[in-house]
């Protein structure tokens, strides 16, 4: 088990994870990060074209391990 830190936010505001989460391996890091991104989008996704949300994962040495992101596209079709 190792501790990973899941920073999250959008272009305007990134909140640093100061607590971290214990994960058994990269698969768990990915699952935990994805669940975080789902919650983040439920709270923070606004009806703004081009909005991007992400979760970025660091290990205990500060090395970036994984980045999950999604962006919203809104286009008028008529």
């Amino acid at each position: 088990m190792a501790r990973f830190f899941f920073d999250s936010g959008d272009r305007d505001l990134v909140l640093q994870d100061e607590i971290g989460v214990e994960c058994a391996g990269i698969e768990e890091v990915r699952r935990v990060g994805f669940e975080g991104l789902v919650d983040l989008s439920r709270d923070e996704l606004k009806s703004i074209d081009g909005q991007q949300l992400f979760v970025e994962v660091r290990d205990e040495n500060g090395e970036k391990v994984l980045r999950l992101s999604l962006s919203l596209d809104i286009k008028m079709t008529r």
């Binding site: 899941f6 999250s8 909140l15 640093q16 994870d17 100061e18 607590i19 971290g20 989460v21 935990v32 990060g33 669940e35 975080g36 789902v38 919650d39 983040l40 709270d43 979760v55």
Partner: peptide, 13 residues
């Protein structure tokens, strides 16, 4: 009913 990552984020906020 929140993910651990979001719990950390909320505490941080």
């Amino acid at each position: 009913g929140l993910s651990t990552v979001h719990v950390n984020r909320m505490l941080q906020e």
